[in-house]
Design a protein around this nucleic acid. Structure first.
Lengths: 199, 199
DNA sequence: GATCTACTGACACAGTCGTTTCAGTAGACG
DNA sequence: CGTCTACTGAAACGACTGTGTCAGTAGATC
C-alpha cells in the first residue's frame, strides 16, 4: 500500500498532539519538518509516513486547532441556544477569547486566517471563509427565530462577529484586556445605546 | 563605505516601488530575494546593496505599505477633524476599506499584522501594536474634546476600531460587501440604537 | 585623463527545505 | 516457523535560501 493519504492511528494522534503543542508556540508559517520532528521526538521520515505530506501535517494541525474552537462553540449550540440572545452570546464568547490561556490558540488562528487570505491554495485553502460561516451560523443560532432570517438579523450577527474579531485583534496586539473588554461590554448593553455615538 | 544600512536614492525608491507591487500580489511571508529581483528586473546582489538585508527590504516594504495607509488617515487628521465625529469617521474609513482597489493592500496589512503577533522579533516587530496605536489616535482626533479623555471615550473608539477591523476580516474572507457594509452601517446610525440587541 | 561614487553581473558558500530510497525492527497472527 | 502490518533510522537527492566575494561598468567631478 502506498503512503499517499493520511491515516488514523494511535501513533498519529499522539504525534499530532505533540506537534500541535509545538505549533502553538512557534506558529505555522515557517513550520518545517525537521524542527518539529525533533521537538516531538520523532523524525521527518515518520511525519511523512503518518501525514503523507507537509501539507497533510499542516492540514491536520489546522483541523486540530479547529477542534479547540468547537469546544467553545458547543455550549452555545446545545440546549436552548436561541434563548441566550446575541448580546449574551457575545459576552460569553468574549470571556473565552480574553482568557490568557487561549492566547496561543488565537494567535495561531489569526495566523492561519491571514495566510489563507494571501495564499488561497494549498493546505490553508478556505480557512478564513470557513470560520466566518461557522461563526455566523453559531451566532444565528443565538438569535430569536423571528429575527434570524431578516436582513437586519444578518447584519446584527455580522456586526457581533466583527466586534468580537476586531476586539480580538486589538487584544492580541496590545494585551490590554480592560480597555478592549470595556469596548466589547459597551456594545452588549453595558450602558444604554451602544455603538460609537456622537456625544 | 560599508553597505550596512539602507540608503535613500533614486534607484532604491524605484526598485522599492516595483517590489511593493510584487509584494501586493504575492504577499510578504514567503518573499525571497531571487524571485522579487527577477520580477523587478534586478538581481539579489542589488537588493542586498540597496537594502542591506532581506529584513531591510521587508522593513522598507512595510513602511511603504504604511505610506498608503497614511494617505487614508491624512484627510481625517487635517482640518476640523473633531467636527467629524466617530460615526462619520467610521463610515468614511469603511468606504475606503471596502473599495476593491485597496484589497491587495489590506491583505498585505492582515498578513503583516498576524505575522507580527506570532513572531514579535525581526522586521515585523511591533507592527500590530503600532497600527492599533495609530488608529486609536486618529479616531480620538475625531471625537469631541470633552469625550476624548473619558474612559467611555476610550471604549468608544476602541469599539469603533474593532468594528472596522472585524468587518474588514469578514470582507477579505467572503467578499460580501453588502452584508458586511450593512453591519457597519448598523453601528454608525443606520437606524436607531446600534449594536447587536436582543429583539 | 584620473578618480570617485553608484550601481551591477557572475558565481560560490554553507545551510535548510521537502521528499525519496533503502533497509530495517517489533509485534500480532497464521 | 513465516508473514504481514505498523512504524522507524540513516542517508541522500535536487532545489532553494540569504549572504559574501571579486570584479567590473557608466557617469559625474576634478
Amino acid at each position: 500500500m502506498t503512503e499517499e493519504s493520511t491515516r488514523p492511528s494511535a501513533r498519529r494522534t499522539e504525534l499530532l498532539e505533540a506537534a500541535y503543542a509545538y505549533a502553538l508556540e512557534h506558529g505555522l508559517t515557517d513550520l518545517s519538518l525537521r524542527p518539529v520532528a525533533a521537538a516531538v521526538g520523532s523524525s521527518p521520515r515518520v511525519l511523512m509516513f503518518l501525514f503523507g505530506n507537509k501539507d497533510g501535517l499542516v492540514r491536520a494541525l489546522l483541523a486540530r486547532a479547529r477542534a479547540d474552537e468547537v469546544a467553545l462553540v458547543e455550549p452555545l449550540r446545545d440546549r436552548q441556544a436561541e434563548a441566550i440572545g446575541l448580546e449574551a452570546a457575545v459576552e460569553r464568547v468574549w470571556a473565552w477569547l480574553a482568557d490568557p490561556k487561549h492566547r496561543p490558540l488565537l494567535r495561531l488562528w489569526a495566523e492561519a486566517y491571514a495566510r489563507s487570505l494571501v495564499e488561497p491554495d494549498g493546505a490553508w485553502a478556505g480557512f478564513a471563509e470557513a470560520t466566518v460561516r461557522d461563526w455566523l451560523g453559531v451566532l444565528a443560532g443565538c438569535q430569536p427565530e423571528n429575527e434570524r432570517d431578516t436582513a437586519d438579523g444578518v447584519a446584527r450577527r455580522t456586526l457581533a462577529l466583527a466586534v468580537l474579531r476586531g476586539a480580538l485583534l486589538d487584544l492580541l496586539a496590545t494585551g490590554e484586556t480592560e480597555r478592549v473588554g470595556a469596548a466589547v461590554r459597551g456594545v452588549t448593553g453595558g450602558g444604554g445605546c451602544a455603538g460609537p455615538a456622537t456625544t
